[in-house]
């Protein structure tokens, strides 16, 4: 069975839901497809402090419930469906899902990204046995223990700060000397004696039998190897774009991000992309929202002309 819509949005994170508010208010019949629950990757964090308009920070669960409510209020329909393929035919676009097909005159791909793995020996075996990709989810299992966080961006430092409230000790491991994270986060991390910072350091191997026991480290400048005993390792080294859906339909860059032109056009004829699955949007809430809104305005322009 194929349902027909004017706009099919794939992914109910900040970009997809912001776009749905705009296409809904433009009175375009809009469906938003989400394979899990609305909200996206931001639900992995405990608190959002850099969302404009919230000087005291905001709980991402409440924020994303509000995004959803606003999209629904203006007429968008949310469907729990996993998009499996996108096809183009004479009438427009078809998104095939596990719940049937959704035809759209325009499709917006806002599928976001998933966390990146380290790719070192021991990681897969010890995932869920001390190796974690979500400090908010798993931090409580490491109360009064020693944990390491690997990464140098906002997420890594936010996770280190979150864990410092629970763990006995936090070791922040970064492969470079300089951190990418916001200065305000760096200042907070460096001010806490509980957090030890290892720069220019990589993890060569994750060791442990039933559960994580230690990390084999190497200093990339001196070449010196060492072993760090830890109970937990939180991997926070960025994300991989979820762009497989449009491989062959839209251009992808070397990192797999969808290449978009002005107006977040991914391909001619009504294919758009927004959020951090694209090459034009840093993985931030506000940029995701901005890209979703720009895409929605561009979709309205396209539907008006088509």
């Amino acid at each position: 069975m194929t349902e027909s819509w004017e706009v099919v949005i794939v992914g109910a994170g900040p970009a997809g839901l912001a776009a749905a508010v705009y296409t809904g208010r433009a009175r375009r019949r809009t469906v938003v497809l989400e394979k899990a629950v609305p909200g996206g990757q931001i639900l992995r964090t405990d608190r959002v402090d850099n969302c404009p308009g919230y000087p005291d920070g905001v709980d991402p669960r409440i924020l994303m419930d509000n995004f959803k409510a606003q999209a629904v209020k203006f007429g968008a329909v949310l469907e729990r469906a996993e998009a499996l393929a996108v096809k183009h035919d004479a009438a427009g676009w078809i998104v095939a899902t596990d719940k049937g097909e959704f035809a759209g005159r325009a499709v917006l791909v806002a599928t976001g990204s998933v966390y990146r793995k380290l790719g070192v020996p021991g990681e897969a075996d010890l995932a869920g046995r001390g190796v974690s990709y979500c400090a908010v989810c798993d931090g409580a299992f490491f109360r009064e223990r020693t944990v390491a966080v690997v990464g140098g961006g906002n997420n890594a430092l936010t996770e280190a700060l979150f864990l410092s409230r629970l763990a006995r000790k936090v070791v922040l491991i970064h492969r470079r000397a300089a951190f990418r994270a916001e200065r305000i986060l760096q200042e907070r991390v460096f001010a806490l004696p509980l957090i030890e910072v290892l720069r220019d350091t990589v993890i060569d191997r994750i060791e442990g039998r039933a559960r994580l026991e230690s990390l084999s480290l190497r200093n990339v400048r001196s070449g010196e190897a060492s072993t760090l005993a830890v109970d937990g390792l939180f991997v926070s080294i960025g994300t991989v774009p979820s762009s497989d859906l449009v491989r062959g339909l839209a251009g992808l860059d070397d990192w797999g991000q969808i290449k978009v032109g002005p107006g977040f056009v991914a391909a001619e004829g009504g294919l758009f992309a927004a959020g951090d699955v694209t090459d034009a949007c840093p993985p931030q809430l506000a940029t995701a929202v901005g890209s979703g809104v720009q895409a929605a305005l561009s979709i309205e322009d396209y539907l008006g002309r088509a």
Binding site: I42, L43, R44, C137, A140
Partner: peptide, 12 residues
């Protein structure tokens, strides 16, 4: 747990 986003994702 209530504070776990992925738990909410897998609940349905």
């Amino acid at each position: 747990a209530a504070w776990c986003g992925p738990c909410r994702m897998v609940a349905p």
